[in-house]
């Protein structure tokens, strides 16, 4: 068996356990559903119960995960379970893993933190600028520095949002204060990236491209969705309001 297959079977050993537990959970939850008793005035029989199909799925997942477990055990042995856990504890992050975590956290912050609270244009421009620059510069050291900068800023903003300080600022100072704050973060990020890339002509060019794409793309997407497809954007703040003013003063 080649190395790739062995690796696969090792991960199958663990995933089969996770899948078995998922199946078990589905079955457990299904038994809470009305099987023979009445629900909403309807007297149930087992064959029309809402639990019937999830029960089939749960049991099928459990059986298939046992089969998968058997294949994995035959290939790498049950003893790998213990070894694998020790390996997991001693996990050493490689470049691939760092990139994966970076992509994941970028998406997570964009979807869960910025989109619901910050102007769509601003949050998209920030997301694109960070996403493009950290990968497009093709320099691991820059990648780490820029990613760290973004994470620090985002975590500060996370605390800011958790304590609902954004509402406080928006209500007491200026209605779009949160947007201004994130715009300031965007400018700070761009300035930091500029300082890091200024000495290298190749990087300077890539920096410029990143910034242009980060601004042009939301500048195209936002009006297309808002005015052409009539989609109300998730958060319409400062920039979208400016777009509204332009749109309705030019095309009355």
């Amino acid at each position: 068996m080649d190395n790739e297959k062995v690796k696969l079977r090792r991960s199958d050993l663990f995933t089969s356990i996770v899948l078995f537990l998922l199946g078990l959970w589905i079955v457990f939850e299904s038994f809470k559903m009305p099987i023979k008793d009445s629900y909403a005035g309807v007297k149930n029989v087992w064959y029309v119960s809402p639990a019937l199909f999830p029960l089939i799925i749960g049991f099928a997942l459990m059986i298939l995960s046992v089969f998968l477990f058997k294949v994995a055990v035959n290939a790498v042995g049950i003893s790998y379970l213990k070894k694998g856990l020790t390996k997991l504890i001693k996990f050493k992050m490689e470049e691939r893993d760092l990139k994966f975590i970076a992509i994941l956290s970028l998406f997570a912050f964009y979807v869960y933190l910025f989109i619901p609270r910050v102007d769509f244009f601003v949050s998209t421009a920030l997301f694109l600028m960070v996403f493009i620059s950290i990968f497009y510069f093709e320099d691991l050291d820059l990648f780490k520095r820029l990613y760290r900068f973004f994470m620090t800023g985002s975590l500060v903003l996370l605390v800011f949002f958790l304590f609902k300080l954004n509402r406080l600022l928006d209500e007491s100072i200026f209605i779009y204060m949160t947007d201004l704050l994130v715009i300031a973060f965007f400018i700070l990020y761009c300035s930091y990236a500029f300082i890091l890339t200024i000495k290298d002509n190749r990087l300077k060019l890539r920096y410029r491209t990143s910034i242009i794409v980060a601004i042009v793309v939301p500048l195209l997407i936002s009006p297309i969705f808002k005015y052409f497809l009539k989609v109300i954007l998730p958060t319409e703040g400062l920039v979208i309001e400016v777009m509204n003013i332009i749109r309705y003063s030019v095309f009355k």
């Binding site: 998209t124 997301f127 996403f131 990968f135 497009y136 491209t209 990143s210 794409v213 793309v217 969705f225």
Partner: peptide, 14 residues
Amino acid sequence: SQIFMPIIGVLCIV
């Protein structure tokens, strides 16, 4: 792809 993929990411989300 470092330019293309983040744009696709935005399109997936929107």
